[in-house]
Simulated scan of single mutants.
Amino acid sequence: MTLLLLKVNRLSAVFWDVDGTLADTEMDGHRPAFNLAFQELDLPFVWDEALYNRLLAIPGGLRRVKLHAETCGVHLSQNQLDQVRDRKRVHYLERVRQGHVNLRPGVKRLLQELNRAGVQQWIVTSSGLASVMALLEQIQKQIPSFDGVVTSDDVASGKPAPDGYRLALERSGANSAASLAIEDSAAGLSAARAAGLRCLLTPSLWDADALRESGDEAAAVLNHLGDPGQPATVLSGASCQEGAVTLKYLESLLSVPDR
């Protein structure tokens, strides 16, 4: 019995979301990139921070564009949506290369600690591969390499569907009971839980739904992962004595009963 408990409590894999979890990509990355694409394509949309904040409740960038256009009485053809996607991607990649997108607190530190401990680390995101690779190229000197990447290009349905997490579990060979997801959104939390994963939530400032829905679903909720001089605040779940999420803290979450 004791041996089994030790095996369950040893962390096998961590699956990282990207946008809002790994890095602050939304407000200074994706949002201005969309605005530049709209301008180039003569579309009558400008997404300020307040509006984009509300639109982030809609998972998926193109779905966000399509639904927002419809509320404005504008029907976009599939060709127009494809053009938005392509031009937005160009501008987003350029903003990443210019250094507008930064890692969230504690991410670099935790990535390095898990890498030293031999824990598998995968990316599972609803973003496209090109956007993810651009970010990884920009930050690759700061962080260890990931063991694998699952993007929207790999699955039929993005978050809140669990497809991405299920594929990552299959490819990694990791045991879901010995693995964790790190997310920032309500959609990501739902996707991870539907795939049978416990989830540590570090909500984005703009995702109020994540905080509302996390109480019965997340293993723990913190404002960020914590760094020296920038301690994390626990909003729900087990206390984080060191003010930073560590391997030891993550392994303690594996023992949190499913609710």
Rank of each mutant, 00 (worst) to 15 (best):
L67G: 04
R104N: 14
V84D: 04
F38N: 05
G60I: 00
A33D: 02
G60L: 08
K88W: 00
L111Y: 11
Q83R: 12
V107K: 04
D48A: 00
V96R: 07
L51A: 11
I58T: 14
I58V: 13
K108Q: 15
G106L: 03
P105H: 12
H68E: 12
R87A: 10
S77N: 07
R54D: 11
D28M: 09
E26R: 03
R85S: 07
L51F: 02
T25Y: 08
F38Y: 12
R31W: 00
L81T: 00
H91G: 00
N35M: 00
R109D: 15
L43S: 12
N79R: 11
R109S: 15
D48V: 01
P105A: 12
F45R: 01
P105M: 11
R97I: 03
P59T: 05
N79M: 10
D82R: 02
T25E: 07
G73D: 00
V84R: 06
L62W: 04
G99F: 03
D42H: 14
R95K: 13
R87D: 05
R54E: 13
L103A: 09
G73T: 07
P44Q: 08
F45K: 02
V46H: 14
E49K: 12
H30I: 11
Y92Q: 06
P32D: 07
L41R: 07
H68A: 04
K88I: 00
F38A: 01
F38G: 05
G60W: 12
M27C: 08
C72K: 05
E40L: 10
A69M: 06
N102H: 15
Y52W: 06
L51S: 02
L56K: 14
G106N: 01
N35A: 02
Q78S: 11
D42P: 07
L56P: 02
Q83H: 09
N53S: 13
L55R: 07
W47P: 06
G73F: 01
A69N: 10
G99N: 03
R87L: 12
Y92R: 05
R54H: 13
R109V: 14
W47I: 04
V90H: 09
Q80S: 13
N35L: 01
A69Q: 09
L81H: 04
K66C: 03
K66L: 10
D42K: 13
D42Q: 11
R95T: 03
R97M: 10
Q39P: 05
E49Y: 07
H75V: 13
P32E: 02
R95N: 05
L55S: 06
R89F: 02
D28E: 13
P32R: 08
L56C: 15
E40T: 06
L81V: 01
L43G: 09
V84S: 08
V74R: 11
E94F: 04
D86I: 04
R31L: 09
E94C: 08
H75M: 12
W47T: 06
M27E: 15
E40A: 09
V65T: 11
R54P: 11
R63N: 12
N35E: 01
G73R: 02
P105R: 09
N79C: 09
R109K: 13
